[in-house]
Amino acid sequence: MDALLDAEFGIYLAVFLAVVLLVEGIFLFYRDIVGPRQRVSRRMELLSQGASNAEIMESLRRQMPDNTNALLPSLMEFVETRMTQAGMRMRSATMATIMMVTTLTVGIIFPIIGGISGQLTSPLAFILVIVFAIAIGVVLPMSYINIQAVKRMRLFEKQFPIGLDIFVRGLRAGYPVPSALELLVSEVPDPLSSEFGLVLAEMNYGYNLRDALSNLADRVRTQDMQMFVVSVAIQSETGGSLADILEGLSRVIRDRAQMVLKVNALASEGKMTGTLLTALPLLTFAFMFATQPRFYLDVIDDPWFLPGVVGMAVMYFLGVFIMRKLITIKV
């Protein structure tokens, strides 16, 4: 008996050590190989491969489709903006198609796999399945895109004052604007490097500085970038030292960033509470419906089910609206 327990303990210990070594190996692989590759500027990598300016623009720049003829133009424009900020090169129409196909697939296959197709005998049951399918096919991808966009834009805003300082030092050293931008691109990692690398590629392709920076502001859409573009536009119209203007702008951006960090620290508890209270009801519904769909379907024909759901939805969205108003502090 003791020998059997010792053998079982040895097996568990071996499995535990194997898992630990596997996790450590994945971490070391990401840290030493994948991480440095991701930090290398995409533009510098293309230049090392001998790519031309047109090829660099084609690789770095997303194709911006015309969404005016789309079924929901404002929604497609929002998806396009968030995908651009997330650094995704996929077209918004392709993403919308993928989300639609995923939603239809979940809506058709889930009742069959879950064994609840026989209970879909009322319109409310179909609506419940549709809501679940939309949550899986639309809400989850959009949440991922939004998280990636916020993460990338925060990193961009963190790198932006450093990039401005490098750009100013290049101008004070006597470099022309394209050479100072080239210095910025070579010294700063992504995403700032790739975005300004695209500005440089557009200038080499024939754009003037104002148009190239305006395109950058349209892609990024941050307040710091808007101030930068306006400063460059005013300097090009009125003259003066661009280095002095951008040096002052860099100080303003750093002071504003410090104030934002203080405000975020003070409001962090409220934001975390709001995030949890917003996400938990949706996650609970998705989990319960995916694992125990009869929890809802067995009572869906009750006359109080629909009024209860409508009232709960109204209170949920009202609560989310109030929480966002309470924790959103503009600086």
Rank of each mutant, 00 (worst) to 15 (best):
L128W: 01
R172Q: 04
A173D: 00
L171D: 03
G170S: 11
K151Q: 12
A135D: 10
R172S: 01
F167P: 09
R154S: 05
A173S: 06
S122I: 12
G115A: 12
L181G: 07
G170Y: 03
R154N: 06
I116D: 13
G137M: 02
F167W: 14
Q119P: 10
V131D: 04
I116R: 11
A173L: 00
V106P: 12
G115S: 15
A133P: 09
I145A: 03
S143T: 15
M153R: 05
R169C: 08
Y175H: 10
G170Q: 01
I134M: 10
Y175A: 06
I145R: 05
K151L: 02
N146H: 14
I134W: 03
P178Y: 08
P141G: 01
L140H: 08
E157S: 04
G114L: 15
L120K: 12
L171A: 02
V150N: 11
V168P: 10
V150T: 13
N146Q: 13
K151N: 11
T121L: 09
V139F: 08
S143W: 07
G115R: 14
T105H: 11
K158W: 07
L164W: 05
A133L: 07
Q159A: 01
A180Y: 01
P176C: 05
Y175Q: 04
A180R: 00
V177P: 04
I113T: 11
D165L: 14
I147C: 09
K158D: 02
E157V: 01
E182W: 09
I127H: 07
R169E: 12
V139L: 06
L155G: 02
E157Y: 00
I147Q: 15
I145C: 03
P176M: 08
A135M: 14
A149E: 04
V139G: 00
I113A: 15
R154F: 01
P141Q: 04
L128R: 01
S117M: 14
N146A: 13
P141W: 02
I145K: 03
F110W: 07
T121R: 14
L128F: 05
E182M: 08
T105K: 12
G114V: 07
P178M: 11
R154T: 01
V177I: 15
L164P: 00
A125H: 04
P141F: 00
P141L: 03
F160W: 02
F160I: 01
T105G: 15
Q148N: 13
L140M: 14
L181R: 00
I162Y: 13
A133I: 10
V106I: 14
L128K: 00
M142D: 03
E157I: 00
V168L: 14
P176G: 14
V139Y: 06
V139K: 05
F110G: 08
I112G: 04
I136D: 04
S179F: 14
I112H: 11
Y144D: 08
L124Y: 13
G174S: 02
Y144Q: 12
I112Y: 07
L164S: 08
Y144P: 07
F167H: 09
I108M: 12
V131Y: 07
S117L: 12
F110H: 08
F126A: 08
V106D: 09
G118Q: 14
V106F: 15
